[in-house]
Design a protein around this nucleic acid. Structure first.
Lengths: 158, 158
DNA sequence: ATCGATGCAAAGGTTTTGCACTGAC
DNA sequence: GTCAGTGCAAAACCTTTGCATCGAT
């Protein structure tokens, strides 16, 4: 792990980052912009490629280090779904009950990121949030439902 | 990816595995035994080490391949918690729904793995399974509910 | 002028693959 | 006897680290 970043997390990003010892640099702004425009959860490589288009001098290392920094400051969350690489998303986006569902095919390892919950489902998740707070003292800020199974295409091939 | 394993999943393991083209071998029995006796979620290396004690001829490759096979057949689930290696656990069959809840603290990055669902929650997840099958042609074998937020300890410290 | 941030190259650790051999059926 | 399963070594893969340089403050 990288221990170079400070511990006192600013309450938001951007905004509180100056004066925390953090510097505003081009790569950081680019990466944040890419994350802000993402239509789905991006892997580090995807973030790198999109950043590269905007700023070809950027390096993959910087992407990883910036993501680390953003995670430590609660700006983004890291999602591991078993596909061998992590994905990242702005934390604010999944705030509240805006819950993503990931369909992960254990056969072809493809990954579908959907966002479609019924009223019933939202209600139950809200209740779950309250229950987790009471029982475990855990305040839920966002959630992701990961489903593992077999996708359409893999069934056809059998 | 490993394409060597057959596609027709047996309905359970052990039991239905013969006659599906799968062979009952010593390494497979050992690995299954280790998983059955596990008191926690084990990493591939831990599974290898425990299997090694029972059967020193075993190789790490076989562990990975067997785990892959078991995942594809819904016998175990793979859990990634952000520590850089995956962990594996027997999929408990609670009315056809293998569902874990992970509470992930975005502040201290600690991780709580609970397994406690109410009747309501189980019912809704069942419905969700059916809906995902109809709408996306995706057959759910197991699921993990990932909650991101702040844990008890971190709240105290503020 | 500092010292945090960067990019490259190299290393690290986990997981996968190629291949010849073994053993379950 | 077949061919799925195995183990070893090597490769592939994602991620982190060392280090000299750059640049925000």
């Amino acid at each position: 792990m990288n221990h170079r970043f400070g511990k006192g997390p600013p309450k938001g990003w951007p905004g509180h980052f100056r004066g925390q010892g953090y510097r505003v640099t081009v790569p950081r702004r680019i990466i944040l912009q890419v994350l802000g425009n993402a239509e789905k959860h991006l892997s580090a490589e995807e973030i790198y490629l999109r950043s590269y288009k905007l700023y070809p001098a950027i390096g993959l290392t910087t992407v990883y280090r910036t993501l680390d920094l953003l995670i430590k400051n609660g700006v983004i969350i890291k999602i591991e779904s078993g596909e061998g690489r992590a994905r990242y998303e702005l934390a604010g986006r999944v705030e509240g009950i805006n819950c993503h569902q990931h369909l992960f095919c254990v056969n072809c390892r493809n990954f579908l990121d959907i966002s479609d919950l019924t009223e019933d489902e939202i209600a139950v998740i809200k209740k779950m949030k309250e229950r987790l707070l009471k029982k475990y003292g855990f305040t839920v800020k966002s959630c992701i439902l990961q489903f593992y199974g077999e996708c359409k295409n893999c069934k056809k091939k059998e």
